[in-house]
């Protein structure tokens, strides 16, 4: 077994284990920390696949941005310090069914996919390529997404502004 394969299994195990931890943990901050494990492991998997840009963006956006916002939000608003979160039986049941269906679907796709190994190529300058694609081929969707984000930002700013003094 080569080092890469070993690394893959280790990281995959870490990602899956953390994801499991995220689901079964009873403390909300611990869940967030498990999420950090998952996101980090997935980022490392991207590195392993030489998708450096994707990996780094995963770290910046999810681990360094979204997750911090989540934890911050929990801290500011949570009234459940030290309280244990336990799903009701019905919730657990529904969740299990959904997850099983999803899992079955994924397995089916994996089995059906034609796996043809591709010879490893020298990684090109992926950042430049992504830039070209975003501002060339996919310019319209890209700009639409930006406009949407801008609208969201303006809305947030409007909601957050203090009520005008009479």
């Amino acid at each position: 077994m080569s080092g890469e394969v070993l690394a893959f299994y280790l990281l995959a195990a870490l990602a899956a284990g953390s994801a499991l931890g995220c689901v079964i943990a009873t403390n909300i901050v611990r869940m967030a920390m498990c999420l950090l494990g998952t996101l980090g492991a997935v980022a490392l998997l991207y590195f392993l696949l030489s998708a450096n840009f994707l990996a780094v963006i995963q770290l910046v956006v999810y681990a360094g941005g979204t997750l911090i916002l989540i934890v911050f939000g929990i801290m500011v608003t949570s009234r459940t310090y030290g309280e244990k979160l336990k799903p009701r039986t019905s919730e657990a049941l529904i969740g299990t069914i959904v997850v099983l269906a999803l899992f079955a679907g994924l397995v089916a796709i994996l089995l059906r996919a034609p796996w043809t190994p591709v010879a490893p190529t020298e990684p090109s300058n992926s950042v430049a390529q992504i830039g070209q694609e975003l501002l060339g081929t996919y310019l319209v969707p890209f700009e639409l997404a930006s406009v949407l984000l801008l609208a969201v930002m303006i809305g947030a700013a409007y909601l957050a502004q203090p009520a005008k003094k009479e």
Partner: peptide, 20 residues
């Protein structure tokens, strides 16, 4: 090839430690 963003990301992730 994305060294700069990697360092930037690491700066960001370090905050989680302080938060936790």
């Amino acid at each position: 090839d994305v060294g700069l963003i990697f360092i930037f990301a690491m700066f960001g992730v370090g905050v989680l430690g302080v938060l936790i």
